[in-house]
C-alpha cells in the first residue's frame, strides 16, 4: 500500500515551475530520502503533500486521502518536522509537549518519556534557551510520540553539528526499529540520509529524476576507470561524467548489471584495463546533479 501517491503534481510560482508533473509513490514502511540540489523543489513537494500549498495542477493522496482534504484525522497520523517551521519558543519543553499531547489520541506517554531521556531534553528549559539541535529534537519528539504512520522531515539536519546530527539519526533509527514507520526525508546531508533511508528519490528542477530502493541504486552505479583505451572509443549512451586524460578514461556507468556489463565494457575497450568501483550515494547524487546542470546548459545554448 502506498502512503503517498502523486499524479502529475505541479506547482508554479508565477513563471517559475517549482514542481513539474511529479508522479511519485511511497510504499508503507519505506524510509525514503528526497534528494536534490538547491531549488530542486523538495520543500515545495513536501508542502504540497501536507496541503501547506495548493497544487497548480495534478493531485496527490496522502494516507489514501486527497491532500486538499487532509483533516484532523489524517494529521493525527502524520508527523512533520521542518527547519522552517517556527516553534513556540516561549514554551518550556514540558509545556510544548503538554500542548501537543491532547491533539493526538494515540500519544504514547511512555514513548515520550523514553525519547525525552534519549534526546536529553531538559523539560524546564524554554525552547528559546535550547540550541538549534535541541529544538529540532524537541520538534522531532513532538512528532514521534504519537507513533505517526507517516513522518515527513524537511531538512532536519540543517545547521546541526556532526555530533548532534549523529545523535539525531541514531535516535531516528532506534525509533524506526520500534515499529512500522514510513518516513519521507528531504535533505542535503546525503551521508546521514544514506544511513537512514532504504529508498531514494531525486528531484531536479522540479522533475523526478529517479525513485528506487537505495540498494538497487547503489548497485547499478559504478565509477569506471579504463587505462590504455583506444583513442577512437567514445562514450556509450547513458554513461555520465565521461572524461579522458591521456591514457586514462573515466566515466560513470548508471546501469551496472554485473558480469554482463563488464563484458560489454571489455568489448568496447579491447585490450584496455577496466576497473569499476561502487559509488556512495553522495557521489551518485553529485554525478547526477552535475550531468543535470550540463544538460541544462546545453538546452539553454540550443
Amino acid at each position: 500500500m502506498n502512503l503517498i501517491e502523486t499524479q502529475q503534481l505541479t506547482r508554479r510560482f508565477g513563471r517559475t515551475t517549482a514542481v513539474q508533473a511529479l508522479d511519485f509513490n511511497l510504499p508503507a514502511g519505506s524510509l525514503c530520502a528526497l534528494l536534490g540540489p538547491n531549488g530542486a523543489g523538495k520543500t515545495t513537494t513536501l508542502q504540497l503533500l501536507l496541503n501547506l500549498l495548493a497544487p497548480t495542477a495534478g493531485g496527490a493522496r496522502v494516507l489514501g486521502v486527497d491532500v486538499r482534504r487532509l483533516g484532523e484525522r489524517e494529521f493525527a497520523q502524520i508527523g512533520y518536522v521542518s527547519e522552517n517551521q517556527p516553534l513556540p519558543l516561549w514554551m518550556t519543553v514540558r509545556q510544548y509537549l503538554d500542548y501537543c499531547r491532547p491533539f493526538y489520541p494515540a500519544w504514547d506517554r511512555a514513548l515520550e518519556q523514553t525519547l525525552r531521556a534519549q534526546f536529553a531534553l531538559p523539560p524546564d528549559r524554554t525552547l528559546q534557551q535550547l540550541s538549534r539541535g535541541m529544538r529540532m529534537k524537541a520538534a522531532l519528539l513532538s512528532s514521534l510520540a504519537y507513533r505517526p504512520r507517516l513522518l515527513v522531515l524537511d531538512e532536519p539536519f540543517s545547521g546541526l553539528d556532526p555530533l548532534v546530527r549523529d545523535e539525531f539519526v541514531r535516535g531516528m533509527l532506534e525509533v524506526a526499529a520500534t515499529g512500522e514507520w514510513t518516513v519521507l526525508v528531504s535533505s542535503h546531508d546525503i551521508e546521514e540520509v544514506e544511513r537512514l533511508c532504504d529508498r531514494v528519490a531525486l528531484l531536479d528542477r522540479g522533475r523526478l529524476q529517479l525513485d528506487e530502493p537505495a540498494e538497487a541504486l547503489l548497485g547499478r552505479f559504478r565509477r569506471v576507470e579504463v587505462t590504455q583505451a583506444p583513442a577512437a572509443a567514445g562514450p556509450a549512451a547513458g554513461w555520465l561524467d565521461w572524461e579522458q586524460a591521456g591514457a586514462l578514461t573515466r566515466f560513470v556507468e548508471p546501469a551496472y548489471a554485473g558480469e554482463a556489463t563488464a563484458a560489454a565494457w571489455r568489448e568496447r575497450f579491447p585490450g584496455a584495463t577496466v576497473t569499476a568501483q561502487p559509488m556512495t550515494l553522495r557521489e551518485i547524487f553529485v554525478t547526477l546533479a552535475r550531468s543535470g546542470r550540463a544538460e541544462n546548459r546545453r538546452g539553454a545554448a540550443a
Binding site: 508542502q47 501536507l50 496541503n51 501547506l52 500549498l53 483533516g71 484532523e72 484525522r73 494529521f75 493525527a76 502524520i78 512533520y80 521542518s82 522552517n84 517551521q85 517556527p86 516553534l87 513556540p88 501537543c100 491533539f103 493526538y104
Partner: peptide, 18 residues
C-alpha cells in the same frame, strides 16, 4: 498571529487542528 493563518510554515497547519 500566535497561530498565523497566512503562513504556510505555521505549526498548527501540520497538527490535527482544523
Amino acid at each position: 498571529h500566535e497561530d498565523a493563518l497566512g503562513e504556510a510554515s505555521a505549526a498548527w497547519r501540520t497538527r490535527p487542528i482544523s
